[in-house]
């Protein structure tokens, strides 16, 4: 047991170091994880401003009455979306190991497969998201729009973002390693993801069908928890159903990742093809 933990920790450290060397200080990371999200946030804010300043808006959505709170609502959306999207991006990069031939080496090594997938996603997340996280935290504190029930709710916020995101990353990594057309998944998970998850609109504004589809994505639950805790001053008790759902969803994603890896590897050993079926 101790040996297994130690070997998992070593895989984790090695993969994190790899991601650090690959991503840290890259211009692409600075642009895609800081400059573009901030400019996109401004565009979204201005595009929604006409409806948020309507005379009835405050009655439908109290948050809309205060421009700073609206901006904070959209900023939390931008941050959480960047977390999840950076994992889509890193999974897409991970699938390049198919073409470069290093994937076979990973499967030949004794490293635990699921650990590898989790470590790869978590490493990428750390390298990608720290810039925007610092910026958003500073901006939210600076605006003074935060309304938090108690100091340890910040810890809950971090966990509600981090754990589902890492599970999501492990699931995507496992899926993309065994699929040939990864560009397609990339297209499908970019634009529709923000729409169904309520990144730029409050949950009640989305039609029921979209809400149901959105509930499948962990980003939706993460956003409800993060916004509730940071902007509405919700307590742990109030957020318990959402957090419970997020835990269940994360466990399901990790289980699915483990199954995909097992099925995919068995298939590869039998047929020599890196595909699920």
């Amino acid at each position: 047991m101790i040996d297994a933990t130690r070997s998992a920790a070593r895989v984790f450290a090695a993969e994190s170091l790899k991601q650090h060397r690959r991503l840290f200080g890259q211009p692409l990371v600075v642009f895609s994880m800081l400059v573009w999200p901030i400019l996109q946030l401004a565009t979204t804010y201005y595009t929604l401003r006409p409806v948020a300043t309507a005379s009835d808006a405050a009655a439908h959505w109290p948050l809309a009455a205060d421009p700073h709170r609206l901006l904070a609502f959209l900023a939390t959306g931008t941050l959480a979306y960047a977390f999840f999207f950076s994992l889509v991006q890193s999974a897409w990069h991970f699938s390049f190991e198919r073409t470069t031939g290093t994937l076979e080496l990973l499967f030949l090594s004794p490293a635990g497969r699921l650990t590898l997938m989790i470590a790869n996603g978590a490493g990428a997340l750390l390298q990608n998201a720290w810039l925007l996280t610092c910026f958003t935290t500073a901006a939210l504190l600076g605006f003074g729009t935060l309304s938090v029930a108690s100091w340890w709710m910040y810890g809950v916020v971090v966990l509600a973002l981090l754990i589902p995101a890492v599970a999501w990353g492990a699931f995507l990594n496992s899926l993309l390693v065994f699929s040939r057309d990864s560009a397609f998944l990339y297209t499908v998970l970019d634009e529709p993801l923000w729409f169904v998850s309520g990144v730029r609109l409050p949950h009640f504004a989305l039609p029921a069908v979209v809400q149901v589809v959105g509930a499948v994505f962990p980003l939706t639950g993460s956003l409800i928890a993060v916004r509730g805790a940071l902007l509405e001053g919700d307590t742990l008790g109030a957020l318990a159903p959402t957090l419970g759902w997020l835990t269940l969803l994360s466990a399901l994603l990790l289980a699915a990742a483990a199954v995909i890896l097992r099925v995919g590897e068995a298939h590869a050993q039998r047929t020599g093809r890196l595909r699920l079926a």
Partner: peptide
């Protein structure tokens, strides 16, 4: 890749206009 982003932006405005603005916009628009 072309149709989807534009369609989603329009849908975003549509939902916001009805659910938040109540079918109206602010005077400055």
């Amino acid at each position: 890749g072309t149709v989807l982003p534009a369609a989603l932006t329009i849908a975003l405005g549509y939902l916001g206009f009805h659910a938040i603005g109540g079918g109206e916009t602010g005077a400055d628009f």
